[in-house]
């Protein structure tokens, strides 16, 4: 990640907050289109670690704006979507924890009930898995100088894993919220509806499972392990 990473994230938060009402213009004006352009070409010189962080923020604050398309081309959209999803899932978890710690029933906060605790633990595991997948994919893309074809395995694995987490994460987030989470007024749908959309965008589960499965079949059982370890650590 670039040295200016923290500043970049702060800027993204501020600019995206403005864009949430003003539309994509402030994001364009702030130069996010130059994030991955090398410094010598007048760009920011960021890497995919930076893009991952920025897109996670976008996934929470401006899920309906084309930030991913502004930052990277078509070949990167599956990877970018994983980052958006990781961000949105993290936010769904934050909202859920806040809610169960605040809302009281039977004289206690909901979060004190073991059934609720166990559900949120399941959800947190899915969120961590997707965050890890997004981070590992970024590591691979950066190690391969942003060549998406050299990260085909990781893109497929990460997008498929993220897709599969959507069902669990949205279901539990809504369940622990009760009716309030089903309202237009409350913010939960601002992350759960985009998650439902992103699952089907840039390759649904069946698409990536078939593709990854066929790729692995050509490697053979032992070959899968050898290929996986050769690609990272």
């Amino acid at each position: 990640m670039s040295a200016a990473h923290d500043m970049l994230c702060d800027t993204a938060r501020a600019v995206f907050a403005e864009a949430a009402t003003a539309g994509i213009a402030p994001v364009e004006e702030a130069g996010f289109g130059l994030l991955l352009v090398p410094e010598e070409d007048g760009g920011f010189g960021g890497d995919w670690g930076d893009a991952n962080a920025v897109l996670q923020i976008a996934g929470v604050v401006v899920p309906d704006l084309p930030v991913a398309e502004l930052i990277a081309g078509e070949a990167y959209q599956p990877a970018a979507t994983v980052s958006l999803m990781a961000g949105a899932m993290g936010q769904a978890l934050v909202l859920s924890i806040e809610h169960v710690n605040t809302r009281q029933q039977f004289g206690r906060p909901l979060g004190k009930f073991q059934a609720v605790q166990q559900s949120l633990a399941v959800m947190a595991c899915e969120v961590r898995a997707v965050e890890a997948a997004a981070a590992a994919l970024a590591t691979r893309l950066d190690a391969m100088s942003l060549d998406p074809s050299a990260a085909d395995f990781e893109i497929a694995a990460a997008k498929l894993r993220a897709n599969r987490a959507v069902g669990v994460v949205t279901a539990i987030a809504h369940q622990v919220h009760g009716a309030i989470g089903f309202t237009e007024e409350y913010d939960l749908h601002r992350v759960t509806v985009p998650l439902m959309r992103w699952r089907g965008a840039h390759g649904n589960d069946a698409y990536w499972a078939a593709r990854l499965g066929r790729q692995v079949a050509t490697l053979g059982g032992r070959g899968l392990w050898e290929a996986m370890t050769a690609r990272g650590a």
């Binding site: 890890a132 395995f153 078939a210 499965g213």
Partner: peptide, 29 residues
């Protein structure tokens, strides 16, 4: 994977894909 061969049945390929994605993610974690 070995039993499925290089040209697996689509349902088996899909399962291999899903299991691989899960394993890869777990390894990172």
């Amino acid at each position: 994977i070995d039993a499925a061969g290089a040209e697996p049945d689509p349902a088996i390929a899909a399962l291999i894909g899903e299991l691989t994605a899960e394993m890869w993610t777990l390894r990172q974690l």
